[in-house]
Design a protein around this nucleic acid. Sequence first.
DNA 1: ACCCTACGTGTCATTTTTGACATGTCAATC
DNA 2: GATTGACATGTCAAAAATGACACGTAGGGT
Lengths: 180, 180
Amino acid sequence: MSLPHALLGLLATEPRSGYELSKELAEGPVGRFAWKAGHTSVYPELNRLLGKGLIADRGEGPRGRRTYAITDAGRRELQSWLMDDPVGPSKMRNEPVLRMFLLSVLDPDDAITVLRRVIDHVDAEAAELRRARAQYGDTVPPGPEGFGHLAAEYGVRADQAVREWALWAIDQLGRHRSTP
Amino acid sequence: MSLPHALLGLLATEPRSGYELSKELAEGPVGRFAWKAGHTSVYPELNRLLGKGLIADRGEGPRGRRTYAITDAGRRELQSWLMDDPVGPSKMRNEPVLRMFLLSVLDPDDAITVLRRVIDHVDAEAAELRRARAQYGDTVPPGPEGFGHLAAEYGVRADQAVREWALWAIDQLGRHRSTP
DNA sequence: ACCCTACGTGTCATTTTTGACATGTCAATC
DNA sequence: GATTGACATGTCAAAAATGACACGTAGGGT
């Protein structure tokens, strides 16, 4: 149950609306690499956090839009979550990686086809992330965009690792095909 | 809902028991990097797969242990899942990465402390994976251990990416601290 | 003026996952 | 011979996530 912490983290850098939070977690780098969630989980969770006093309502905007900000209690909760508990066994769901592992059940030619597709995909994604990264200057830890900067940088590196792994796997499969 | 596919994938390389499957998904490389699950989800899911005829029961062993094997139908299901649907927006939950992103809410010194802890952790994990990897020879795609080999190789690379990202982040934070 | 799209927030039933509890077996150590 | 720990499989209530549905608004283009 890390969704509340993801929301607190996003709100810790700057106040946002439920819509913006949902978008980041559904399509943005944070959703892609760390914790994906749809708006149907976000809105109820925001109300729970509001009830616990970990976030505060900052009034209405244009279309019933409500902006939330983290409270001191919320910040304390987040900090203790980060500092206190150890780097133990954590929740993990990574569908793309699962699919890559499963590739060994296909015959080598098909597996290679899929791996090439994966490479194209991470290349496109990495290019987009690089563009995003270029927009943040060297604003890293505080500043309203430090969060996105860290995420984009991680994304580029994670994609690169996948890319190189896929190339390695293609090589292995090719080798296996020619030496039966 | 990729758990059934994870199980089919594991069973595609060699028959296993629910206990072995649970262990791999709870503590092994597949669980760590691709899809974590406890035995409480695995056993019911196995019975569902059995009901659908995607896996078959291969009789009992020592302590009521039951070994399952993938069926032809199961293999077809798995292959079409891998080949047919596109590399679209997928499920993603990665608690360690989420925590790293959130680090920007701590003050730089605390963030650096946590990052060093992360580095130690991935180093230890990578060392273990390298040991595991060494045990599989160059048996890659078929063979009973191709699966684990792919997973271990990916794990080493993913850990390496995290390691380098953490080093980069420490550098950024240090820079920020000295230039206020 | 009209239409379309993105904005914006929500509910609710169904499906999935988690965590606590339950139960028994085999092998090795003391 | 007793105890301990890993092996082995399950149930069930509670919590969380998903997907379908629902409703209204502001702005841009034609």
